[in-house]
Design a protein around this nucleic acid. Structure first.
Ligand code: SF4
Ligand code: SF4
Lengths: 167, 167
DNA sequence: TTGTATTAAGAGTATTTTGTCTGAATAAAT
DNA sequence: ATTTATTCAGACAAAATACTCTTAATACAA
C-alpha cells in the first residue's frame, strides 16, 4: 500500500474534522468511534498532526483536537507528509535511494512523471474541498466492517460539538 | 512504499534477464550477485514468477531461470501482479475494501483516475522495452551500497551466459 | 478540593514483512 | 556411480509495523 495505515487513519480523521459544520474541539473518542479506528492508536497518530501544527489539542473535559488552520489552508499532502514523512513524493516505485536523472533506472521517466502527478493531486486537494465533498455526497470515510463497542458508541452519542472559543 | 520489497526484487530481476542479449538460463546466484540481493530471498521471490509461468526454471549445473515468454510479451504489470497480487491496481490510496462509485469516499474520483494511469503505465511497459533501456542507457537497476560477498562475486565471474536450447 | 474527561507519553504485545538457513530434488559432468 | 550445481520447499529469525494498555498531565465542573 502506498500509505501506511497510520497515515490513512490520520487522513480520515482530518477529513472528518473538516466535514464538521464548524471547526471545534472534537474528542478523539468521537472520531475513533465514527471512523471505527482504535482510540489509542488514533491518539498516537493524531499526536503527529498536532506536533506538525496541523491540529491543536486541548486536554480535559470538552477538550479534544481541532484543525489548527483553516481547512482551505491544509492540503492532503500536508497530512500525509506529517505522518508518513516527506519521502512519499520523492521516493521511487522501486524504493532505491539516491537515484535521479544522472544515474536512472530504466523506468525513471515514466515513474517521475507519474509521481509528480500524484504529488500535484495531493497538494491541490485541500481538507476544505474533501470535507465539503464528504458532506455533499453521502460519502463514506471509514471501514465499516466491525461494530462499534459500547464505549465508542456512547462517546459518539454524547458528542456535544461545542465550537472552539465558546468555553 | 507502493510495491513490497519482494516485488521490487522480482521486477529488477526480470528486467535484468530481459536486458541480456539472448534469453538464456541464468543462475539466481548470478542475478542476486549483480543486483545485490540476498540469494535465498530472491530464490523465493522468483519462485512466484515461475509459478505464474512468467519464468521457466531448470535445476542442476548450468541451470537457472529464464523468461518463459518473449520479453515483449511480459509487462511490468504481469510481474508486479505475480508477486504482490492483483489488488495493487484495484485497491485504494486508503486501502479500504469494497468501495466504489456507489459508496465512495471524498477522494474517489481523483484517486481512481490516478490509479488507472498507473495501471496503464505498468501494463504498457514491457520487459523488452525496459531491458532495452537498461542496455542503451548506462543504467542502474540495483541498490549498490553493499559490496558483493566472495561467493556471489565468483558466481558472477563464472557466469557463462549459455543460451537456452544449446545444451 | 475532589472527581471526571480528556490528551500525552511511552511501555508492551501482536502481526506482518523481510531475510536466513537447512535439507531436499534434479540434472549435468566426471 | 559419484560429485557438483542448481532450483524447490519450508522452517526459522529478525525487523518493521500495527495495535493495546497503563500511567501521567491537564483542565473543567460540582
Ligand atoms: S531512477 Fe527513477 S524510476 Fe529508477 S529507481 Fe530511481 S527514482 Fe525510481
Ligand atoms: S471510494 Fe475510491 S478513493 Fe475512496 S477509499 Fe474507495 S477506492 Fe479509495
Amino acid at each position: 500500500m502506498l500509505l501506511s495505515k497510520s497515515c490513512v487513519y490520520g487522513v480520515q480523521a482530518a477529513i472528518y474534522m473538516a466535514s464538521l459544520p464548524r471547526n471545534e474541539y472534537v474528542s478523539i473518542q468521537e472520531i475513533a468511534g465514527k471512523l471505527n479506528i482504535s482510540f489509542h492508536f488514533l491518539t498516537k497518530v493524531l499526536q503527529n498532526l498536532t506536533q506538525a501544527k496541523l491540529l491543536m489539542s486541548y486536554r480535559g473535559p470538552n477538550g479534544g483536537v481541532a484543525l489548527a488552520r483553516q481547512a482551505s489552508d491544509i492540503s492532503l499532502a500536508d497530512v500525509i507528509e506529517a505522518i508518513d514523512g516527506g519521502d512519499i513524493f520523492k521516493e521511487c516505485l522501486f524504493g532505491l535511494p539516491g537515484c535521479g536523472v544522472a544515474d536512472p533506472c530504466p523506468a525513471h521517466e515514466n515513474w517521475t512523471s507519474m509521481r509528480s502527478r500524484l504529488q500535484h493531486l495531493c497538494t491541490s486537494l485541500t481538507l476544505e474541498e474533501l470535507g465539503k465533498r464528504a458532506n455533499q455526497l453521502n460519502v463514506r470515510l471509514a471501514n465499516a466492517d466491525a461494530p462499534m463497542n459500547p464505549a465508542m458508541l456512547l462517546a459518539v452519542m454524547n458528542s456535544k460539538n461545542k465550537p472552539v472559543g465558546t468555553e
